[in-house]
Write a protein that binds this DNA or RNA. Sequence first.
RNA 1: GCCGAAGUGGCGGAAUGGCAGACGCGACGGUCUCAAACACCGUUGAGUGCAAGCUCGUGUGGGUUCGAAUCCCACCUUCGGUACCA
Length: 854
Amino acid sequence: MTEPAHSAEPRSRVERYDPTAVEPAWQARWAEARLYDTDLSDTSKPRHYLLTMYPYPSGDLHIGHWYIVTPTDAIARFRRMHGLNVFFPIGFDAFGLPAENAAIKNGGHPFPWTMQNIEKMRRQFRTMGATFSWDHEVVTADPAFYRWNQWLFLRFLEHGLAYRKKSPVDWCPNDGTLAREQVEGVDRHCWRCGALVEKRDLEQWYLRTTAFADELLDFTGLDWPEPIRTQQTNWIGRSEGAEIDFTTAPSGHHQEHETLRVFTTRPDTLFGATFMVLAPEHPLVAALTAPERRAEVDAYIEQARRRTEIDRMSTDRDKTGVAIGAEAVNPVNGEHIPIFIADYVLSGYGTGAIMAVPAHDDRDFAYARQFGLPIRRVVATPGTDADSPVEDAYIAHAADEQLVNSGRFDGLSADEGGRRIVAALAESGAAQPKVTYRLRDWLISRQRYWGTPFPIIYCPTDGIVPVPDEDLPVRLPETVDYKGSGSNPLDHDEAFLHVECPRCGGPARRETDTMDTFIDSSWYWFRYLSPAKDDGPVDRALVDAWTPVDQYTGGAEHAVMHLMYSRFWTKAMRECGLIGEGEPFRRLFNQGQILGADGERMSKSRGNVQDPDELVQRYGADAVRLFLMFMGPWDQGGPWSPTGIGGVSRFLNRIWTVALDAHGREPGDPASGVLAAGETEAAARDALRAAAHRTLRDVTADYEAFHFNTMVAKLMELSNTLFRYRGTPVAGGPEWDETLRLLLLMLAPAAPHITEELWSRRQVAAGRPWTSIHLESWPAVDEAATTESTREVPVQINGKLRDRIVVAADADQDTIQGAALAAPRIVAWLDGRVPDKVIVAGGGRLINVVLRDG
RNA sequence: GCCGAAGUGGCGGAAUGGCAGACGCGACGGUCUCAAACACCGUUGAGUGCAAGCUCGUGUGGGUUCGAAUCCCACCUUCGGUACCA
């Protein structure tokens, strides 16, 4: 370490700050001193589990990773300074599509590709100076981790939370199942081979997320951002309504009185049902279709299967559909209505069939218009002609609206009428109240190699047989032959495929699907607590002590999938008696996303990835960390631009200068080293100390609220204040010294290296042994130092600023009002007129003089 | 389409019912230097005025209020998610 250069020579220069030398040296020293090891069994301090979403090992740590991680690290350091025992682990979400794509393309294996990427990212992570508990790292592609996915899956199976069902996937004849992003163009072709994508029905595994639908709607005790809670609530989409059984009318081509069950949220509009629509996939379509309609119906079904769900749900495109040549009978009045199939009805929601009430539903209205079907009003406000033509679907719920055209239910309110209609039909079993959810069970089967194998064996005699716990893990084979195709190589891996049935010992076949990677991220934070544990997935005592996670940080793009699956999985583990609590994350913060310079998501394929390494080389990790925090609000993100990093770099250099060269003067500034005209030395000392403590008060609040951008701005102001006093008699005095000390402590969580270096030099200068600034306590605000004797009050006339007055800090409202009305410029504006009103706002913070026709 | 979010100087942003533009970038002017770079100091929303100042100004249009970037209604644009990217 160099000695601090405290020179009395006015034009002295200290050596320039060189982050490339300082930062790695401190990183090594911290690691050596094991400064950030967390003792999970330490109960002497309050525990704080700080979690940030673990990265996918794409191979390069880009600036987006820094944006997620380095402010979170600042939180970790800030909390440690408050005496908390902070656990801040990291790991890698190592299964997934990109590794597989690389292997297919280059003829390799996903495993080494992934592990090399992880190795590189670990090195890059270390340059951040982050305080990770590396000895708790989890890599999900390690059998030591995914073994427990298998084990947990088997527990869920035992508890009825996992089941098997046939469902369609996007299928390419050459490359097998495709992800949504692998289907391109309006004609929906395969990204790799260009073949047209079709749907294929496969038996697949599901997890019963809907079992917890109501519990997932309950956010009690969770401090989560409201937009996320709203998105999850809407995603679950609870709707109350009724199931109503229509029957089919007699016809020559099918059996009469087949039951057609519909779900509706508006049973009150049952008399307004003028047609029925089935999803094209509805199981009765084939049986009900009239022979002369069959060709057209089959063609429509084929066409619907090629559309995406988003496309199908779009309400602004023209409605399509075909009549199937059959009729349904309305149970409430025996009316016969035609049956259609249309792709705006989805098979996965409700019963896959709707009664269409065009007068009171937008989509039904559009369909009726398109196909010239009758529209009958059944709800109206009093005074509306019940039979006037309906120009627009009328949906709004007015308090006084009543049923019309509804037989004996006419005149009832919509709510009451709906209840009575359901009750009346319920007597004959033709209706019952029903709650449905938009939420679907979680399809976890993937027709891919690079994931957790299902611990399932199919035996010709015993059927579906779980792999016994003692045979876990079912390992992925270490050699793999993709044959240049995207389809799952496990399907033709003879050694993997053939297995003895654990029950009968006969020849059997392994499940070749693997698990969705969202499974890994649904419980990885539990595993961080005991990553090496080999007799169970979690250490119950540690889980009880450390979870729910106190603070989770990560992107809002995970609002409904990862963040919902994690809540489900935690509840499912609780249901199996493995843990005690049902919520994973007590407090959540969603930071924004850093986009490429082009405003698009950063990705290797777009070529817009920003590598932080060269910025770190040039400006240092502290400058990069600070710049990312300073750019804007953390929850906002935005397109990447390095413009402005010079500003924070300059800020750090100024701190370096004031800290090491208090008495130096700037030759470029003629006023340097001189107090402002009229400022006494005593006043300057007070002003400096007041600035320091006000900054401390505000910066503390900013850290608490994760308002890092304003936190940095306030520290810049304080360093500017110090710079202004540099070289004056105030510099180097006790107030100066206190201010500098506070500045370093406040900056330490955000810029850990430079503050440690300067802290260390102060200790050397004072002849004390080294102790890390990162083991210091957060300083306390001296409230007395922050008070002022006078303050400025803006005076407005009709809301426009016209003057400012200075009053004593403790002046009462009457005094302030009097002073405001006596201010020369206000007197001139009033020009003898008497104000209509004078508003003293915010306890005397502002005066507004109201002058009508002024 | 549906769900969620965001629109403020040349740029990133601050202010979430009370002084619009903190802090920083860029630009311009200056100091230092033999010079350049670095560094430092100052100016910088638009219009108008010799000036004090005045007028306008927070995506668009309307509304509430003594007072609106902030609250309400309608719309426009951009971003995230939309169940096999993670």
